[in-house]
Computed example of a mutant assay.
Amino acid sequence: MKNLILILTLVFSSYYSNAQSFSLEHDHSTIQVENIDKSVEFYKNILKLEETETPWPENKMIRFFKTGKNQQLHVAQASVDIFGEVKVNKVLHLAFAVNDFDSFLRYLKEKGVNYSNFSEESNKIQTRPDGVRQIYFQDPDGYWIEVTDAKH
């Protein structure tokens, strides 16, 4: 009987350790855009994201940008025939953190990018209950982008 309990314990502990042997990490997000060139210009020149190679270098209808350690943003040319109309809202947004929030605000003003708080009060900063400051603005396709001074 002791041997049976020992064998069952080993079998079940092996099963549970294998069942939880992964670690989920964010890899990438993809957005679809109406004008790939205009969007690529925005993500490269306004957000200063570094473009990286795709598995399909000859296909310029999808572009990859580095957004952090082993993370990317994929920007894909929309095909209305296949995907339908691009619809966006503020709840579904991209979020980034910066190490110098005040410099970033000055940079956006220099570039003519209007920002707001979540309630869309122009040039207003929102402060979360944990003290993190945040703003929102839109890319050329209307996708909302949140930028915070969160320390990660």
Results as ranks from 00 to 15, higher is better:
Trp144Ser: 11
Ile7Trp: 01
Phe104Gln: 05
Glu121Gly: 01
Glu51Val: 14
Ser21Cys: 10
Tyr43Phe: 08
Arg133Ser: 07
Glu34Arg: 12
Lys69Leu: 13
Asp139Phe: 02
Glu34Pro: 00
Arg106Leu: 15
Glu41Pro: 04
Met1Trp: 09
Glu120Leu: 13
Ile62Val: 15
Val91Glu: 13
Val75Trp: 05
Ser122Cys: 11
Phe65Lys: 07
Thr52His: 03
Arg106Ile: 15
Leu73Gln: 05
Ser14Gly: 15
Tyr43Trp: 01
Ala97Glu: 11
Tyr115Thr: 01
Glu25Gly: 09
Ser39Val: 06
Ser116Tyr: 03
Val147Arg: 05
Phe118Asn: 02
Phe104Arg: 05
Ser23Asp: 11
Ile82Thr: 10
Lys111Ile: 06
Ile5His: 08
Asp81Lys: 11
Lys60Gly: 05
Glu121Ala: 07
Gln20Pro: 03
Gln126Pro: 02
Leu94Ile: 12
Asp130Glu: 08
Gly112Gln: 03
Gln77Gly: 06
His152Phe: 15
Lys69Glu: 10
Val88Gly: 01
Ala19Pro: 01
Tyr16Gln: 04
Asp139Lys: 01
Ile31Tyr: 04
Phe101Gly: 04
Pro129Asn: 13
Asn114His: 13
Glu41Leu: 11
Lys90Asp: 12
Lys90His: 11
Trp144Tyr: 15
Ser116Met: 06
Thr127Tyr: 03
Leu108Asp: 05
Glu120Pro: 00
Asp100His: 08
Leu10Tyr: 09
Asp141Glu: 14
Ile82Leu: 14
Gly131Leu: 08
Val11Phe: 14
Lys109Asn: 12
Val91Ile: 15
Lys87Ile: 15
Phe137Arg: 04
His152Gly: 12
Ile36Val: 11
Phe118Thr: 06
Glu53Trp: 04
Val147Ala: 04
Ser39His: 07
Trp144Met: 05
Ser21His: 13
Asn117Leu: 03
Gln77Ala: 08
Phe137Glu: 02
Val88Met: 00
Val132Gly: 02
Ala97Met: 06
Val113Leu: 00
Gly131Ala: 07
Lys48Asp: 05
Glu53Arg: 00
Tyr143Gln: 04
Glu51His: 03
Ile62Lys: 03
Arg106Gly: 05
Val113Gly: 01
Asp37Pro: 00
His152Pro: 09
Gln138Ile: 13
Ala97Lys: 10
Ser116Val: 09
Glu146Phe: 08
Tyr16Asn: 07
Leu4Tyr: 14
Gly84Ser: 12
Asn99Phe: 09
Ile5Thr: 13
Glu50Asp: 11
Ser116Glu: 06
Phe101Thr: 02
His74Glu: 14
Lys151Leu: 14
